[in-house]
Design a protein around this nucleic acid. Structure first.
Lengths: 108, 108
DNA sequence: CAATTCTATGGCATAATTGCCATATAGGCA
DNA sequence: TGCCTATATGGCAATTATGCCATAGAATTG
């Protein structure tokens, strides 16, 4: 039962950190449908363009998205297909937690 | 194409934040095999016991682990089954990224 | 009860993240 | 060339995360 090297967990943590922000998760959800330029994503998120640009840099650096230049605009696209299923599973668990908590409240 | 409410992304971000630390990921990997007490996890991680306790509180608060008291000891167990598959997928993507980067380096 | 062990919490210093402003860079167009 | 648009980056202040120490609480044992 060898534990895997610390390096692996730092790599994973980098990905998890990139996911750990509501605006970035919102953008990823949008990018799951189609690629979008920074201007589109800026409208979507409703933050300063420089802020969105930095968020995208985080996602790109983590390997979660890729970009493509077309004229002046830069289009970002999702590179990872595991997110939808992952969040479905997580949300299932959290919903179950809620039910259990409510059951406790009701003295079940 | 309604976007889901901001609340959802904050809930997801909370889970992602809980995952965003190498020590916590190491513990989760260990807990995937069997439940462990705080003392076991403290040995595993090699940090101060109070630090490990706080990490566990983060995981518990995010709904990722649950605990059980037995005498003086508190056993933590994994509550979420999606992690193994998620990291497999992520690591597959990252490995692919590496290959592509190397190909670029070799002027393919 | 006293002593010991296991775990959680408060407090604090350090480090990392976040978001905006200002500015730089680059492409498109007159 | 000059101007406009789209994007990225530097810098800074405010917030949040991290980790250790000291300590508190709870169960066990003598």
């Amino acid at each position: 039962m060898e534990r895997e090297p610390r390096q692996l967990y730092e790599a994973r943590a980098k990905v998890a950190k990139a996911l750990a922000h509501p605006s970035r998760l919102l953008m990823l959800d949008a990018l799951a449908e189609k690629e979008m330029c920074v201007c589109d994503l800026t409208d979507l998120v409703g933050a300063d363009q420089s802020t969105v640009s930095k968020h995208l840099a985080v996602l790109k650096n983590a390997g979660i998205v890729a970009d493509r230049k077309e004229g002046v605009m830069i289009y970002y696209r999702l590179k990872v297909g595991c997110l939808r299923g992952f969040w479905n599973c997580i949300e299932g668990v959290l919903k179950q937690n809620l039910k259990e908590q409510q059951a406790v409240m009701n003295n079940l």
